[in-house]
């Protein structure tokens, strides 16, 4: 039972909690864009915290875990932005009452 072990366990647990919130957000949110928000943010931090916890438990794996974390930090927002753009261009329905400046600008242009 070491200090690193306790910190690692707590980090992994909080990471799992954020992943849980991401799942809950996916189920509860009313439209695609809000789901994307919950999905992207909470999974990014959840995964990073879990990886950090694993690095505390096994310091010899820290470099490889850091690489996975950096990779996720860079690619996760990109994939959700690309997906959000595709969904908006194909006219995915939005929750009632959404103000949409992008659709307004699209209509002005031919």
């Amino acid at each position: 039972m070491t200090i690193g072990g306790i910190i690692g366990g707590i980090l992994m647990l909080s990471g799992a909690a954020f992943l849980f919130l991401a799942g809950l957000g996916l189920v509860r949110m009313p439209d695609l864009f809000n789901r994307l928000q919950a999905g992207t943010k909470a999974t990014t931090l959840g995964t990073l915290l879990t990886l950090a916890g694993a690095a505390c438990l096994r310091p010899d794996w820290a470099v490889k875990l850091l690489l996975i974390g950096l990779f996720i930090l860079f690619t996760n927002p990109i994939s959700s932005q690309v997906l959000a753009r595709a969904a908006h261009r194909t006219g995915t329905p939005q929750a009632a009452g959404t103000v949409d400046r992008l659709a307004e600008d699209r209509e002005k242009r031919p």
Binding site: M29, F33, N34
Partner: peptide, 13 residues
């Protein structure tokens, strides 16, 4: 997400 009433005010700005 944890608020039961789901306080949203979505907009694309």
């Amino acid at each position: 997400v944890l608020t039961p009433s789901l306080p949203l005010n979505p907009a694309i700005v």
